[in-house]
């Protein structure tokens, strides 16, 4: 009797447990679906009011009639800051990954990798604080004047009336470049470590120097993984909000110079969302929609690259 009733109880628990885990999985599916619905619905007023011109329009003016909202400057600055961040971040992070995966002796590898990874644990608002009180003053007094002095002939580094604060597209890009270091570095480190020793030895046995062996061995073998890591970094840079908001200068005008202040999709949402009237709020949500589209695209590409790497590993290892 007791055996039978405990078996029945176990069956009930099994069922209940199944239901709970099923519900949790359903939530995992429901959240992104709901997210798309809510964002689309909340941006609807702006979508119908401005149509596709929203993407190309350069004005963001909630005050003077006719009220116009256009996303072009913010899309541009989002892409520019992320690309410069990659330019800064890729050589450093991949260099560090090569050192930690290929060159460092065993006793040095684990502790240094752990310390380097701690950079990922620093909250983005702290990066912003550091950027605002350390990097921005440096750019204002030293960095920007130097750039203008030597590269001012190029419109990219020309100084304008509004660009003397040190807060600029360039400053934000530098911060982003630092913030994506741990992402790119740790993912490419894993890709490099996954390279079989036989690849290194194949190169060495042909008479390659240590650098050459690294280049035609692990760096080639892991290249799609490293590329995937860089694209993941790009995704992180595009979505980053606080550090950018605090260092980019928050100007809605389109500037030509990198040392002019600017505004990204995420920083404008952060700055304006709280005080926006309904139509502007809808337009800000539409910016969120665009940002989401950009980062989804980038993340899917990164994942495909990283997956193609695992496939290659399966065929040669």
């Amino acid at each position: 009797m007791r055996g039978a009733s405990s078996r029945a109880r176990a069956r009930i628990f099994d069922r209940a447990f199944g239901v709970f885990t099923f519900l949790a999985a359903a939530i995992l599916i429901a959240l992104p679906v709901l997210l798309v619905i809510v964002i689309a619905q909340a941006s609807w007023p702006a979508l119908i009011r401005f149509g596709p011109a929203f993407i190309l329009d350069k004005t963001w003016d909630p005050n003077l009639p006719p009220i116009t909202f256009g996303a072009a400057p913010f899309i541009t600055d989002t892409i520019i800051t992320s690309l410069i961040a990659l330019l800064i971040g890729i050589p450093i992070s991949i260099g560090a990954a090569v050192f930690l995966a290929e060159l460092a002796p065993d006793w040095l590898r684990a502790p240094v990798a752990a310390v380097v990874d701690l950079l990922a644990a620093v909250p983005s608002v702290v990066f912003g604080l550091w950027g605002l009180y350390v990097l921005v003053p440096y750019m204002r007094t030293t960095g920007d004047p130097l750039l203008t002095k030597y590269l001012g002939w190029s419109p990219l580094f020309a100084q304008h009336a509004g660009s003397q604060s040190g807060q600029s597209v360039l400053t934000a890009s530098i911060i982003l470049g630092i913030m994506i270091l741990p992402t790119i570095s740790s993912v490419s480190r894993e890709a490099l470590r996954a390279t079989p020793d036989s690849q290194r030895e194949a190169a060495l046995s042909l008479g390659a120097t240590r650098w050459e062996a690294t280049r035609i061995g692990p760096l080639s073998y892991a290249r799609s993984g490293i590329f995937g890591a860089a694209v993941l970094g790009l995704g992180r840079a595009m979505g980053e909000t606080m550090a950018v908001t605090m260092t980019i200068g928050n100007s809605n005008n389109v500037g030509t110079s990198l040392i002019d202040p600017g505004q990204t999709l995420s920083s404008l949402i952060a700055i304006n969302f709280g005080n926006a009237l309904p139509l502007e709020r809808a337009a800000l949500v539409e910016l969120g929609l665009i940002l989401m589209g950009l980062s989804l695209l980038v993340n899917v590409v990164a994942r495909l690259l990283l997956r193609s790497m695992t496939r290659m590993g399966a065929t040669t290892a």
Partner: peptide, 18 residues
């Protein structure tokens, strides 16, 4: 030396990206 003394390994280790 490694150029003068070539080596073939236990498992084929072609360079997969080449």
């Amino acid at each position: 030396i490694r150029r003068k003394i070539g080596m073939v390994f236990q498992r084929p280790n072609v360079f997969p990206t080449m």
